[in-house]
C-alpha cells in the first residue's frame, strides 16, 4: 500500500516536471534546434539569450509591470477586503461575487474585448493599457489571499485597541496591518508571479514598444525556434521558484490556491 502511494506520487511528480526538464535540459545543447537529451554541451545559448535585446527589454518591462501590478492590486484588495470584512449585509457579498467574475470569463475573451475597446476609442496601446489588463487578471488572486488574512484576525485585538482609545486609522495601521504581514507578502508574491507569467492579456495588449518577456519568448518561438528560448526559461523559472518558496513560507502554496485542509 505504501509502495503504491509512493509510486503515484512519483508518477505525478514526473508528469509535473517533465516539460520543465525538457526545456532546462535543452538549454545546454549546442544544436540549433532545441533537443532533449541535448546534443553536445555548452553555455552558448545563455550568452545569446543575454544578448538578445527583446528578452532584456521584455524582462525589464515584465518586472516593472509585475511589481506595479502586485503593489496596486494588493493595496486595492486590502481596502476592499476591509470593507467586506467590516460591513454586514448583502452589499459586500455582491461586491465579492462581482469581483470574482473574471475567473469565469476566458482571459482570451477579455483580452480581445479590451483590445477592441482601446482601439475603437482611439487609445494607443502602451504600458497603461497593459497595466490595467494585468490589474484585472491579478485582482482575484490578491483578494482571495488578503481575505485569508482578514478572516484569521482575532476580533479581540481590534476591540482591545479601540477600548484603549486608538483611532480607526491607528487601529488599522499599527494593529491590523502588522498582523496581516504574511498574507500581504503572499498576495504580493502571488500576483507578481501571475503577472510576470501572464500570456493571453499581454499577447493582445502588447505593443511593439511594450512587449513583456513572456510575449517576447512566445514571439521568438514563432519566428525562429532555437535553444535561446530554453536559456531564457531559466530566468523565468528561477523567479517562479523564489515565489514558491516565499509563498510556502508565508501562507503555504496550497492555501494561496484555495486549498484548506486541516
Amino acid at each position: 500500500m505504501i509502495g503504491q502511494r509512493k509510486l503515484l506520487a512519483a508518477i505525478i511528480g514526473i508528469f509535473a516536471l517533465l516539460p520543465l526538464v525538457m526545456v532546462l535540459g535543452s538549454a545546454f545543447g549546442t544544436s540549433r534546434f532545441p533537443m532533449f537529451p541535448p546534443q553536445g554541451f555548452g553555455f552558448g545559448w545563455f550568452v545569446e539569450a543575454w544578448n538578445k535585446r527583446d528578452f532584456r527589454e521584455g524582462f525589464i518591462i515584465s518586472f516593472n509591470l509585475a511589481l506595479l501590478t502586485s503593489t496596486t492590486v494588493t493595496i486595492a484588495a486590502l481596502i476592499i477586503g476591509r470593507y467586506i470584512q467590516k460591513t454586514q449585509g448583502l452589499a459586500p457579498k455582491i461586491v465579492f461575487g462581482v469581483l470574482n467574475l473574471p475567473v469565469l470569463v476566458p482571459l482570451i475573451v477579455l483580452a480581445t474585448a479590451s483590445l477592441q475597446m482601446w482601439k475603437s476609442y482611439g487609445f494607443y496601446l502602451d504600458f497603461r493599457t497593459l497595466f490595467l489588463g494585468h490589474v484585472i487578471v491579478g485582482f482575484p488572486f490578491a483578494i482571495r489571499t488578503v481575505m485569508i488574512g482578514y478572516r484569521n484576525l482575532s476580533p479581540a485585538i481590534e476591540d482591545v485597541a479601540r477600548t484603549l482609545g486608538a483611532s480607526p486609522a491607528r487601529i488599522y495601521l499599527s494593529v491590523i496591518l502588522p498582523s496581516m504581514k504574511p498574507s500581504i507578502i503572499a498576495s504580493m508574491v502571488l500576483v507578481f508571479v501571475v503577472s510576470f507569467d501572464e500570456v493571453p492579456m499581454s499577447l493582445f495588449l502588447a505593443s511593439p514598444r511594450t512587449t513583456p518577456l513572456s510575449v517576447a519568448m512566445f514571439n521568438s518561438m514563432t519566428e525562429e525556434l532555437t535553444p535561446v528560448l530554453s536559456a531564457a526559461s531559466f530566468v523565468v523559472t528561477g523567479i517562479a521558484v523564489v515565489g514558491m518558496i516565499v509563498l510556502e513560507r508565508t501562507i503555504g502554496i496550497a492555501r494561496a490556491f484555495g486549498v484548506k485542509i486541516q
Partner: peptide, 26 residues
C-alpha cells in the same frame, strides 16, 4: 509533498511549460 507537486505547474511560466511539451512531442 503531493500538494507542492500538483501546484508546481501552475507557477511555471506558461510559455516554458508549453515549450517543454513542444520539445517532448517534437
Amino acid at each position: 509533498l503531493l500538494l507542492i507537486i500538483v501546484i508546481t505547474p501552475l507557477l511555471i511560466n506558461a510559455v516554458v511549460r508549453t515549450f517543454g511539451w513542444y520539445i517532448f512531442f517534437s
